[in-house]
């Protein structure tokens, strides 16, 4: 039996996942002006749906998380040089007053022409992926692998850009997330069509019937029909995901590319590090140990960590570790 055990149930993962999905929202906007041309964007989105599943093969799967765009506006602007006609004054001799002509200008605004397109009703993504968790021991005394080490190269790049800390001089336990298959639908056709139909029908019914149980009933029916349409249209993607899961490989160029990149990162870059020995009491300076009140700096207390292991079953994630002698 391990010295320490921590277990988290699948239901806890699901509850935490649902909460996270409900609360993750983002918004960004920016614009740039190149003189004659300008461009800008204003995007706002949130996550929706999805589920998380712990599986008996030591992996977990996040299934069909929808990326929804509340606003996906892109603006292009054109600033046409101002053209003015008229204007100017003619000096007439006294006692006649000066004669000033009115000026008419075109393209005074900046930009003069602006086109904004909101793509949010037509764009939706869906992401699914599965992966496992692995722990490895980093022995600082071991020399790096001979020859070309792609992992070291990747880590150096990340360290040089201050994205991760370098590997330390002391031993550590490293926790890695090893990605499996990835399925990214850049255009979630089923949801796009389903949303368009549902929105159109809902708007029509709401306009025709201002309120009451009949309207509610019709809206409920529309929702169910839209869900059915989404489900039917999503069948090809479900088959694609099922096959990916079965053969443990991502289909599609983008999915395969993302899987390769994530696997490279997953294998090379730990997501969590635990020092070995693990400090439990900090160094401390005290005057209480000597009768002459001379200050003494005590070394930190650290515990050796052994057999750190993370296991996933279909019911829970279990983290176990021993304290070394």
């Amino acid at each position: 039996m391990a010295d320490m055990t921590l277990a988290i149930s699948e239901a806890t993962f699901q509850k935490s996942f649902d909460t996270m999905i409900k609360n993750i929202r983002w918004e960004a906007q920016d614009s740039t002006d190149w003189g004659a041309f300008s461009a800008g964007y204003h995007v706002k989105g949130h996550l929706q749906g999805g589920s998380i599943d712990l599986r008996a093969d030591n992996t977990l799967r996040v299934d069909e998380v929808d990326i929804r765009w509340d606003m996906l506006e892109f603006t292009l602007g054109l600033d046409i040089p101002k053209i003015c006609v008229g204007g100017g004054c003619i000096d007439l001799p006294w006692p006649l007053p000066d004669l000033c002509l009115p000026e008419f200008c075109l393209f005074k605004a900046d930009p003069d022409v602006s086109i904004t397109v909101d793509l949010s009703p037509f764009v939706a993504q869906e992401v699914s992926f599965e992966g496992g968790i692995a722990t490895r021991y980093y022995d600082a005394s071991q020399p790096p692998p001979a020859g070309f080490d792609p992992c070291a190269l990747l880590r150096d790049v990340l360290v040089n850009n201050s994205i991760i800390d370098p590997f330390p001089a002391n031993n550590q336990w490293h926790v890695y997330i090893i990605p499996g298959t990835v399925d990214i639908d850049l255009f979630d056709f089923a949801d796009i069509v389903g949303d368009l139909i549902e929105n159109a029908l809902t708007a029509a019914v709401t306009a025709l019937i201002p309120g009451g149980w009949v309207r509610d009933l019709l809206l409920a029916i529309i929702g169910s029909v839209a869900d059915l349409i989404r489900w039917v249209l999503d069948i090809p993607d479900e088959i694609d995901e099922w096959l990916s899961d079965l053969f443990n490989v991502s289909f599609g160029l983008l999915d395969l590319l993302v899987q390769v990149v994530l696997t490279f990162f997953g294998v090379c870059v730990p997501v969590y590090r635990i020092d070995d020995p693990f400090p439990v009491m900090d160094a401390k300076t005290t005057t209480a140990l000597r009768l002459d009140q001379a200050p003494v700096t005590l070394v930190p207390v650290a515990l050796p960590v052994r057999n750190l292991n993370v296991a996933i079953t279909d019911l829970e994630l279990v983290l176990q570790a021993d304290i070394g002698a």
């Binding site: 391990a2 055990t5 921590l6 149930s9 239901a11």
Partner: peptide, 18 residues
């Protein structure tokens, strides 16, 4: 039997570890 059959999160420390 799973550790979390009666709770969401389970934590245990063995006497040997203490």
């Amino acid at each position: 039997m799973p550790f979390t059959d009666h709770s969401d999160i389970y934590a245990a420390v063995h006497e040997k570890g203490i």
